[in-house]
């Protein structure tokens, strides 16, 4: 079986996979990172979104082999090492942007990338359009939109302060 070497949440792994193994299967089944979810089989729901080399990607739509040499960040690696939640996680909690929690990891990872990609600001419409690839059946998106809008200044102020 072919091997894939990749870094996940800062830790390097070399794993044997089948050619058809998906990145999400590698994460969930080989590495035990079950925070990334599978909600569909047509690349529509976004429950499996992770970051690959800093950009959001649907890990159900990527072969594990395609991630060879990549740096992958999953929901388990988003909070600080001491457990302090990322501002996006904190704002999801503050604004009740999750109910059953199943879409949440993918939703949060998409939202982080969306905010990162828009340092100039994000309108409600841009947020809604930016969530095109993520389905939530519980919240009606209302509170997700609010949480992302609230996380934007926290994420960009933090970035500005660090510069």
């Amino acid at each position: 079986m072919p091997q894939v070497t990749l870094t996940v949440n800062g830790k390097r792994h070399t794993v044997e996979v089948e050619g058809r193994t998906l990145l999400v299967e590698l994460l969930r089944e080989k590495l035990g990172l079950t925070g990334t979810h599978v909600g569909c089989d047509t690349s529509q729901c976004g429950a499996c979104v992770v970051h690959v080399d800093g950009v959001s990607a649907k890990s159900c739509t990527m072969l594990a082999l395609q991630a060879d040499g990549s740096n992958v960040l999953t929901i388990e690696g988003l909070a600080a090492a001491d457990g302090t939640l990322h501002p996006m996680q904190e704002m999801f909690r503050e604004h009740h942007a999750l109910q059953c929690g199943f879409c949440t990891p993918g939703m949060v990872m998409s939202a982080v990338d969306l905010v990162n990609a828009h340092p100039e600001g994000l309108s409600e419409k841009q947020i809604r359009e930016g969530l095109e690839g993520n389905l939530c059946r519980c919240t009606g998106y209302h509170n997700i939109v609010k949480a992302i809008a609230a996380a934007w200044p926290l994420m960009h102020q933090k970035a500005a302060a660090a510069e």
Binding site: R28, L33, T34, G35, T36, H37, V38, T74, I75, E76, L78, A79, L85, Q89, F92, R93, L98, G101, F102, T104, P105, V108
Partner: peptide, 14 residues
């Protein structure tokens, strides 16, 4: 919320 937001939920497929 803390466990759901951190990827530590325990769903059946997990």
């Amino acid at each position: 919320d803390a466990r759901f937001l951190s990827g530590r939920g325990n769903y059946t497929d997990d």
